[in-house]
Design a protein around this nucleic acid. Structure first.
Length: 866
RNA sequence: GGGCGCAUAGCUCAGUGGUAGAGCACUCGCCUUACAAGCGAGGGGUCACAGGUUCGAACCCUGUUGCGCCCACCA
């Protein structure tokens, strides 16, 4: 075979990501390589992922970069495997979050949303969305996301709005959506209802105030952390079996400060063991009390407005709830003997997820989804294995949630969102108006909007054209895998399950839920602005490249685990990309190629590297199939760097200088070809650039995913190269100990004594810079290793002290080996019960260590004195 | 209050019964013609603690301690 021209390669010595990333991305888009076709050959399996739509607020952070990198790996690999692979991009309108952001913008101009009015305000949010959304799309391109841009979706666009209207109507007609006056979580700052999961609890230091209601034998002591709510008390509850209070049940007791008398009721809910066993009941301002109130037909007395300001007539009227709290306690103190005790008390307080304001339970008229049957189905789909959760431990959380879910409050008193499709008639009639239907003239629409997660819950099918029966829906639903952080398992994943199963007649929205963790800093701390440890993915992309950013994230990404990252690690990833660059550069400079079959005759080095390649392919496949991206990256990193670059490339230099040059060019091409393909999903840009140079083909994106060939496994070659590595390392160690410069040529005589390494003398001499002995050769040291004796002429006396130290250390280690092995082999129980392989291993170990000791003792004895 | 998880090298983490590993950091020596974003050679861990099972435990069991996370309508 004629040698291809070499030395004509013009690649810089350092990889510059900025020079290739933008260019390659545009080329991929222009070539339509990201697009998926529902009409493609039906023999090709379909594989779809819908992106967790980022909020249009703000920009992509490291968490998104991780989430997107994982999805891109999955999609790119499946594409290479021949699947019709679809990755749907899009964004979420993020109702309350976005409204808050735009309101803050307005506040800078001294305006509130009420100054603009609903229509203009919503218009303003759309403007903001166009701007912010564009930024996010740009970031996705920088990351290299191979999404099908022709299918970009937004949770508030017309198609998604139709899906929302459709499912709302169906749920409404099925009696699964209802409107009711209930006590809900209310944010006094956002002025809207919140669902349970939009309330975050954290432990706060507060005060537990004990109050004596009534007097004398008719008095009863209750405790509260929210003293101001006593203004709204309408009962005192005790446990029915509690003898201490039995005589008071049914009687009325005077409520201080109010002049009202309130009944004592018996309710199972009260824990007689807790506190005094008596509870003040404020049905309007506490969820438990609301239930007690319903059971006993108690009045619901609202004493606070929507902003948390006291409305109860009297001295506290107009005070904020947090001002009223101490004021009420002070007033009760003045009454005398009412405040029995005030003590510090740590308890969980609910806060608004979006603005951290303390949430106030509030009775109001809201819309709810009756979750019972939906949550049951969502739980069953995971229980019966139709949907798998990775890692499986996370399933426990999922079940805990779907099995205990309360009805979902879906109405929000906001302006930005899908308006509730219910109209009210002049006669008080209510009608849900489906898509395409017109409300009767003169009717008015409900002013509330839907919880943002309502539309997100439809995402896996609304993005595929539902409610229409589209080719996309038929081909790509259910989607293959949902990739997201475990933090939104409840917010989003469980709700997609509920709505997906409901809307699609029992077909699950995805087969697998692959959860990843949060991106953290190098000390495992959560990234936060206040901590100052936030890293912007774009900053890393600018300085180290998208590939390095992705590799850093993916290297730490195993199922469910958090991903720590650090600047130094990104540099390491950048260095890795550069290593690939230079290895390929070396190969191209030496005429490596991928044309024709592999040579029939392989050198041991060739056979070894090809054998290792097959193992790597198999291992990487296994890891990627189980979402162990970090493990897959480690395998590829070590194979590429430690084996291909450090050994095969070095060994190939000898071969390229000899009569195996042509075969070596082909093997080098083969190894890099497959290695780059395996790496492409992880580091798409640098692999594309290098692979197209190496092969001359159009794009690595459409190259087939490598398949392991067992016929290429060669344990013999692996063993032989292993001993070659040991020999080389041992001699290098001697050289290093003796202070010989790495580049310094040293004369050596090699005695192989029948070792198969004899065939590799040239390579050994090359790797070790050993020259042939000439007539002046005088050995100053003899190193026996791997059955070969290397006699060196160091051109002067060797450092005996250094050598003795080294040999003594090795000798000690070998003796310890003997000790351990002898102890085991001399143990009757061990010999009787241990598997034969383990016993044999220890026998080998003992024999090896004994031989080593003998060698080392000989070498020590041979050392000149002093 | 309930549930889950973690504790291995300076840092972040692999390692689920058979001689303790990686990346980064550290030490020494090197511009050895792919790469100094590099090359070579090193140092560093009684695997949290205490028991138990086993011929053998970082790994399995029990307990202790210390962390982390999730859920929660005990005033």
């Amino acid at each position: 075979m004629p040698s291809p021209p070499s030395g004509e390669v013009d690649l810089p010595t350092q990889y510059a990501p900025a020079d290739v990333e933008g260019k390659l991305y545009e080329r991929w888009v222009a070539a339509g390589l990201f697009a998926a076709d529902p009409g493609a050959d039906p023999a090709r399996p379909a594989y779809a992922i819908v992106i967790p739509p980022p909020n249009v607020t703000g920009s992509l952070h490291m968490g998104h970069a991780l989430d997107h990198s994982i999805q891109d790996v999955l999609i790119r690999r499946r594409r290479m495997q021949g699947y019709e692979a679809l990755w749907v991009p899009g964004m979420d309108h993020a109702g309350i979050a976005t409204q808050n952001v735009v309101e803050r913008e307005l506040a800078k101009e001294g305006l509130s949303r009420h100054d603009l009015g609903r229509t203009d305000f919503v218009e303003r949010v759309w403007q903001w969305k166009a701007e912010s959304g564009g930024r996010i799309l740009g970031q996705m391109r920088r990351l290299g996301d191979s999404v099908d841009w022709s299918r970009e979706a937004f949770t508030m666009d017309d198609d998604r709005a139709r899906a929302v209207r459709t499912i709302f109507k169906r749920l409404f007609d099925d009696g699964l959506i209802y409107r009711a006056e209930r006590i809900i979580n209310w944010c006094p700052r956002c002025l809207t209802a919140l669902s349970d999961i939009e309330v975050v609890h954290d432990e706060r230091e507060g005060e537990l105030v004990s109050l004596r209601y009534g007097s004398g034998d008719d008095s009863i002591v209750v405790a509260t952390t929210r003293a101001e709510t006593m203004l709204g008390d309408t009962a005192i509850a005790v446990h029915p079996e509690d003898d201490r209070y039995r005589h008071l049940v049914g009687r009325e007791i005077e409520l201080p400060l109010t002049g009202r008398r309130i009944p004592v009721v018996a309710d199972d809910h009260v824990d007689p063991e807790f506190g005094t066993g008596a509870v003040k009941v404020t049905p309007a301002h506490d969820p438990n009390d609301f239930e007690i109130g319903r059971r006993h037909a108690l009045p619901t007395l609202t004493i606070m407005d929507e902003r948390g300001v006291i409305t109860a007539a009297g001295p506290f009227e107009g005070l904020d709830r947090f001002e009223a709290r101490p004021a009420v306690v002070a007033a009760l103190r003045e009454e005398g003997r009412i405040v029995k005790e005030v003590r510090p008390y740590e308890h969980a307080v609910g806060h608004c997820q979006r603005c951290s304001t303390v949430v106030e339970p509030r009775v109001s008229l809201q819309w709810f989804v009756k979750v019972g049957p939906l949550a049951k189905a969502a739980g069953d789909a995971v229980r019966d294995g139709r949907v798998q959760i990775h890692p499986p431990e996370m399933a426990a959380r999922y079940f805990a949630w779907v099995d205990n879910m309360h009805d979902w409050c879906i109405s929000r008193q906001l302006w930005w969102g899908h308006r509730i499709p219910v109209w009210y008639g002049p006669d008080g009639e209510t009608r849900c108006v489906g898509p395409g239907e017109e409300p009767p003239a003169g009717w008015t629409q409900d002013t509330d909007v839907l919880d943002t997660w309502f539309s997100s819950a439809l995402w896996p099918f609304s993005t595929l054209g539902w409610p229409d029966d589209t080719p996309e829906l038929r081909r790509f639903y259910p989607t293959a895998v949902l990739v997201t952080g475990y933090d939104i398992l409840f917010f989003w994943v469980a709700r997609m399950m509920m709505f997906g199963l409901y809307a699609m007649d029992g077909v699950e929205p995805f087969k697998v839920i692959a959860l990843h963790g949060m991106v953290r800093d190098q000390y495992g701390k959560k990234m936060s602005k206040s901590f100052g440890n936030v890293i912007d993915p774009l900053d890393w992309i600018d300085r180290y490249g998208a590939d390095a950013t992705r590799f850093t994230l993916l290297r730490g990404a195993n199922p469910g685990s958090d991903v720590p990252v650090a600047e130094e690690w990104a540099q390491g990833s950048r260095n890795f990309c550069n290593k690939l660059w230079n290895a390929t550069r070396f190969a191209l400079m030496n005429g490596a190629h991928t044309r024709g079959d592999l040579p029939a005759e392989l050198s041991a080095a060739d056979a070894w590297v090809l054998s290792r390649l097959q193992r790597v392919i198999t291992e990487v496949d296994e890891r990627l199939e189980s979402f162990e991206f970090g493990r897959a990256c480690e395998i590829l990193y070590h194979f590429a760097w430690d084996e291909v670059c450090d050994w095969y490339v070095e060994l190939s230099k000898v071969q390229l200088a000899g009569d195996r040059a042509d075969a070596t060019r082909r093997v080098l091409g083969e190894v890099l070809d497959k290695l780059l393909r395996l790496l492409h999903p992880v580091v798409p840009f640098v692999t594309e650039e290098l692979w197209t140079s190496l092969t001359g083909a159009e794009s690595i994106m459409v190259a087939p995913w490598p398949a392991a060939e067992d016929a290429r496994l060669d344990p013999g070659a692996e063993t032989l190269v292993g001993s070659l590595q040991n020999l080389v390392t041992e001699v290098r160690r001697f050289r290093s100990d003796q202070g010989l410069k790495p580049g310094q040529r040293v004369a050596a005589a090699l005695s192989f004594g029948g070792s198969p390494l004899a065939a590799h003398e040239e390579a050994i001499r090359s790797l070790l810079r050993l020259t042939l002995p000439d007539e002046s050769f005088a050995a100053t040291a003899a190193l026996p290793v791997e059955g070969v004796t290397v006699e060196l002429d160091t051109a002067g006396a060797i450092d005996v002290a250094a050598e003795r130290k080294r040999l003594e250390k090795d000798l000690a280690a070998a003796r310890k080996e003997i000790d351990q092995a002898e102890r085991k082999l001399g143990n009757a129980d061990f010999m009787a019960k241990a598997p034969e392989a383990v016993v044999a291993k220890n026998r080998d170990r003992l024999a090896q260590a004994r031989a080593d000791v003998e060698l080392l003792e000989t070498r020590l004895a041979a050392l000149p004195a002093g």
